[in-house]
Design a protein around this nucleic acid. Sequence first.
DNA 1: ACATTTTTGTTGCAAATGCAACTGCTTTTT
DNA 2: AAAAAGCAGTTGCATTTGCAACAAAAATGT
Lengths: 215, 215
Amino acid sequence: MAKKIFDGINQGELEKLLDCMKATKRTYKSGEIIITYSGQIERTGIISGGEAQVIKYDIDGNKTILERLSGGDMFGRLFTYFSNDGDISVICTRSCEVIFIDLKDITKRCENACTYHSVFIENLLEILSDRSITQSVRIDILSQRTLRKKLLFYFELESKRQGKRSFTLPFSLSSLADYLCVDRSAMLREMKNLRDSGIIHSHSRQIQLLNMNNA
Amino acid sequence: MAKKIFDGINQGELEKLLDCMKATKRTYKSGEIIITYSGQIERTGIISGGEAQVIKYDIDGNKTILERLSGGDMFGRLFTYFSNDGDISVICTRSCEVIFIDLKDITKRCENACTYHSVFIENLLEILSDRSITQSVRIDILSQRTLRKKLLFYFELESKRQGKRSFTLPFSLSSLADYLCVDRSAMLREMKNLRDSGIIHSHSRQIQLLNMNNA
DNA sequence: ACATTTTTGTTGCAAATGCAACTGCTTTTT
DNA sequence: AAAAAGCAGTTGCATTTGCAACAAAAATGT
């Protein structure tokens, strides 16, 4: 399971910790903009309840969901995205409570001898590290030169993750095409080819890997 | 300029810091393997002199350079890569000195009141964050559906980075093809098309962006 | 229960791409 | 100085892919 920022810190400690870090809280209603990434961002946000999305609006007004955030997820400083065109915002999608902390208050030497402060930083480092690995995986997939290789590479990974040769995709086929950055119809055509070649069985989101040798 | 781990820490402080973190040092000759990523990695390494490379050997024995490391660069714990096939190693390419630190000694509460300890952590967070942005950029480039768009997107970025419409590529055209994950000859063909369409001027690594409107 | 939106599935076609093979030029090594 | 290795550039060809357009099924909202 993915590490969450408050893992290993109990309720009582958490309150002291937030106090020590001069954390502020605010609630947002669904639809409200929590932050927009523009200029310098100093604060780091932690979703403590509800749901939010990191969204990119490009010049043409199309929006892309970059990430879904729920309890324990973070955004803002240290979690910046890159955008060549258009703005990136964090928008509340289900009324949520957000904790804001300044980076300086995270890294500063803790005058109160709170041991959980170091747990917090350890978690933070781990989260950033994990995030990087997730991106590394995505890059590995996108590095595959052909659609077929992208598909098989992804299927192989997902199969390993779920521990079965037969599994259900965690999202829709349309989303998969977006994730692999390929045309949806071209992807479905290629899946048909894979079926016809006897390399996979598939029906909608149900995938079964057969003899990968022929791949 | 990219943040380095010891930025803002002077020599005297550095020695105290390394002492406080129970850092160990070792030197390696060119060709020596510094670590291989297998199983759990607890230590984080910092190159303090010389050069090393993060290399992936896939099943067929092909090697890929994932990253080049020089003074101040880090590897090991928190800097893990993902590999579906084959091993990843850090190999010394020019006799180098390496500082090793245990993650626990980085995050632990510092008994000695060393202020630079928090600077160290701040730098570390920043480095991990920057690394994630670099990956995010790469993903954005690879997300472009066609070779032409990948090229133009990359050229646009590089042009902004260098602050000129006319610039020199930071690596060879072969390496660029690798970076964009496309066939080299197909890429050169597309660059020729861009030239013929009057969108760029280019000769070897010299690129000049003209009227991007036609793109 | 009905209307609307999303998702899955398919096909034709032109254009883009990977692959392989070959040339000449430059840099590095021996 | 010769040999080897790497880099830039080109071309033919079969295959892959994006794009557009359409249809049916499933999910969602009212």
